[in-house]
Amino acid sequence: MAVDKFTIEDLTRILREAAGADEGVDLDGDIAETDFEELGYESLALLETGGRIEREYGISLDEDALAAARTPTALVDLVNAHLAAAQAV
């Protein structure tokens, strides 16, 4: 997919598809800096989310980097760095 920007809205959509949403959490609220664990997503949910992002955006995320991205902002930045690198080629 030819996109130059991955947004937090893209992420919350994919999170919902991949793993649903915890009943006590508003994904449309101010979650940018909230740890994924507090949002109710364990490592497997993030693995599934990462896999869906890779499929949809045609990129390959490093496993360690994915595990190190503990907040929505960190994951959005990680994806955008890959998108920028792919477009620079």
Binding site: E17, A18, A19
Partner: peptide
């Protein structure tokens, strides 16, 4: 069931 459980 909560949506969190459906994909899994």
């Amino acid at each position: 069931l909560p949506s969190r459980l459906l994909p899994q």
